[in-house]
């Protein structure tokens, strides 16, 4: 039973991280119908920035929570800036181009950012300090759920609630929903669509950065390639839940997290990444619109 619970919590933790990244995919897709391939790289850049900031701060004698908070803030800031810039360079000139063009541009951006980090930093794995504090009240449950896992799950839950409030109850949230529904109509009623798209990219990138810092502290090492696989998996989660749907992305991520956790726990750990893709192909065959997605008919 303990083993089952451990796997369950492991899956929940994984799922939370996937959800943070998947939200960026799903929000961008909901608004401009583009798979933002560079999203995984934004997450990776967030983790790298946090590592750099944390190392500098630790070496200059700071410690504890202040390092964590500062590293978090800087990582979120930089990831958002990168997301914003990527959109401006690679996607904005291509609005209205054929469907294939922004996709190829997105892949190009992803390859560029990966190699930029690799050349500027290193191609080796870097150890990432565990920034998350040990919580004393989690001590008795440590064999099932460590405090790192607890922090990841709680942070994700809080971020999700904040995001829901932002989308449901604020003016920019309303504008985002309007743009997702019908971009031209939103433009006609006075929504600044370009600004909405930029905001979406910024929010998505900030979420990815949060996920990046959390998972890097949890796993303890990063390299330039982590964004690639994480990105594909988060995308799988977004498709599983129904791309474009925000609760769908969270649900899909949790299901994916559990699938991977149980499959590696009970079947084999060598094929960890294969399960996610197999799941993706299965969903696409049987329910292409995802669990919570609406199936849309293409109109002429």
């Amino acid at each position: 039973m303990d083993y089952f619970l451990e796997l369950f919590i492991g899956g929940l933790t994984r799922g939370s991280i996937y959800a943070l990244i998947a939200l960026g995919y799903t929000m961008v897709y909901g608004i401009i119908e583009l798979i933002n391939f560079a999203h995984g790289e934004i997450y990776m850049i967030g983790a790298f920035t946090a590592l750099i900031v944390a190392t500098i701060l630790t070496m200059s004698g700071m410690s504890g929570v202040s390092v964590l908070v500062l590293a978090f803030l800087v990582a979120v800031l930089y990831s958002s800036c990168y997301g914003f810039t990527v959109e401006k360079i690679a996607y904005k000139p291509l609005r209205g181009a054929s469907r294939l063009s922004p996709l190829i541009s997105a892949i190009g951006m992803s390859i560029f950012l990966q190699n930029y980090v690799m050349l500027a930093q290193t191609s080796d794995f870097l150890p990432f300090p565990n920034l998350l504090p040990e919580l004393p009240f989690m001590e008795p449950y440590a064999h099932i759920m460590g405090s790192t896992e607890f922090i990841i799950v709680t942070t994700t839950a809080v971020v999700m609630i904040l995001l829901t409030i932002l989308i449901k109850f604020t003016k920019i949230g309303k504008a985002m929903r309007a743009t997702a529904q019908d971009r031209n109509m939103a433009m006609l009623v006075g929504v600044n669509v370009n600004r909405v798209i930029s905001t979406t990219f910024i929010i998505g990138s900030a979420l990815a950065a949060v996920g990046g810092v959390l998972i890097a502290s949890h796993i303890g090492r990063i390299n330039f390639y982590i964004g690639f696989i994480a990105g594909i998996k988060a995308f799988t989660a977004a498709v599983l839940g129904g791309i474009g749907s925000i609760p769908g992305a969270v649900l899909g991520s949790l299901i994916l997290g559990w699938t991977e956790s149980f499959a590696t726990g009970y079947v084999s750990s060598d094929y960890e990444d294969v399960f996610a893709f197999a799941l993706l192909v299965l969903i696409l065959i049987f329910r292409p619109s995802g669990l919570l997605g609406r199936s849309t008919t293409q109109k002429v």
């Binding site: 583009l34 798979i35 995308f235 893709f277 993706l280 696409l284």
Partner: peptide, 25 residues
């Protein structure tokens, strides 16, 4: 067979996944 009935963006990601699966296997 399973993926070509779908829209282009899904095809991109599934083929990407397939490439990685092949290498991992």
């Amino acid at each position: 067979f399973p993926v070509l009935r779908l829209r282009g963006d899904y095809l991109a990601i599934v083929t990407l996944g397939f490439g990685e699966i092949t290498r991992i296997v």
